[in-house]
Simulated scan of single mutants.
Amino acid sequence: MSDKLTTASVLAFERKLDPSDAVLYAGRWEDRAQSHSWQPLSVQTKSVRGTISNRLKAKDQDPVKLDAAIENPNLQTVDIAALPAQADTLKVQFTLRVLGGTGTPSACNSAPYRAKLLATVQGYVQQHGFAELARRYAANLANGRFLWRNRLGAESVAVTVEQMQGGGSVKTWDFDALSLDTRTLLAINNEAKGLEELGQVIAGGLAGSGHVLLRVTAFVRQGAGQEVFPSQELILDKGAAGKSKTLYQVGGAAAIHSQKIGNALRTIDTWYEGAESLGPIAVEPYGSVTTQGRAYRQPKQKMDFYTLLDNWLLKDQAPPVEQQHFVMAVLIRGGVFGDAS
């Protein structure tokens, strides 16, 4: 036991919030209670004739060259998803499994490190439990953050969360998503009826007290014929695809990637520097926000996941409580965190 504890070179964790892909349907707002009235939303292909609008280099700004370029139209073939002319509402549905065993690595090649990790996690659970994290996950279900761009500009958004057991619903929570703030996350959302109870169910699942499966359904009233926004596929060989935009489909129906749903659910990090003005970001080891091209948890600031975890386990320097929440949220997120070269 005199050997100095070091980080395991093989260290991996499985995610504990496990969402499915979200499938998109179309129908009428007044038919929300009638499941047979909703049809899977299909993806259509259209060809468009665009114009040259990109920023030009200095050598290409000659009027003659620009006129010649504009004579060649920017032809594109793209996927598009839109509500039918007779449907004014988008339905988005997915399931979410909440798994126990938080902090237990799926792979770890150091028995001493594993023992210290489990003891540290157990100490956190005994002192704080999962109530704080679970409330935040529940808030992101209730406020419809997982709808992404589909939430913007909607007239009404109704979210229903059902706890499933034996193939049926045993408990249901209904939320008016637009009345809940995605920016403050919890400050004014705690008054939402049912949010606390939903958080307790999620916390129980994370603690491993029982099987927790949630079915989440959102109805978004946008207007008849309006465009909606499934996930866009990343096509590495665009020449072979023949399209400049390809939308994700599940069994012929437009859908949102499970990874994108998961990113929205774990957008709970308000413990980084600058969170007061920027709002919550997704839980990532370095606080990465790709749309801004910035990492908000820099190793130099000693606020990144690896520095906090190493100080906690290897140096017995427990981080502040809010940073302990962050470390546990990263473990719930899952990933490969070993110290291998």
Rank of each mutant, 00 (worst) to 15 (best):
S2M: 10
D3L: 10
L5V: 04
T7H: 09
A8D: 05
F13Y: 07
E14T: 08
K16D: 04
W29P: 00
W29L: 06
Q34P: 08
S35I: 12
H36I: 11
W38Q: 08
Q39E: 14
Q39R: 15
L41I: 09
T45P: 02
V48E: 15
R49P: 12
G50Y: 13
T51H: 14
L56E: 14
L56W: 11
K57Q: 14
P63K: 02
K65A: 06
A68P: 02
I70Y: 10
P73R: 00
T77S: 04
P84S: 01
A85F: 05
Q86D: 13
D88C: 02
F94P: 05
T95C: 13
L96M: 06
L96Y: 10
V98H: 11
L99A: 04
G100L: 05
T102H: 04
S106A: 03
N109Y: 11
A111H: 14
P112A: 15
Y113E: 11
Q122I: 00
Y124T: 05
V125C: 04
H128F: 09
G129E: 02
F130Y: 13
F130N: 00
A134F: 01
Y137H: 10
A139H: 07
L141C: 01
G144I: 04
F146T: 02
V159Q: 09
M164L: 14
V170G: 12
W173L: 05
L180G: 04
L180C: 00
R183M: 05
T184E: 11
A187P: 01
N189T: 04
N189P: 07
L195F: 09
G199Q: 07
Q200P: 00
Q200G: 10
V201H: 09
I202W: 07
I202M: 12
A203V: 00
A203D: 08
G205Y: 04
L206Q: 06
G208C: 08
S209I: 02
H211R: 13
H211Q: 13
V212M: 11
L213F: 09
L214F: 12
V216D: 08
G223W: 08
E227N: 06
P230L: 01
I235H: 01
I235R: 02
K245V: 08
V250G: 12
A254T: 02
I256L: 11
L265T: 09
T267I: 07
I268D: 08
T270L: 11
W271M: 12
E273G: 10
E276R: 10
S277P: 02
S277K: 14
S277F: 06
I281P: 01
A282R: 04
T291V: 13
R294H: 15
R294W: 15
Y296H: 15
Y296P: 09
R297M: 15
D304V: 12
D304N: 13
D304Q: 10
Y306V: 13
L313T: 06
L313G: 10
Q324F: 05
L331H: 00
R333Q: 03
R333Y: 01
D339M: 03
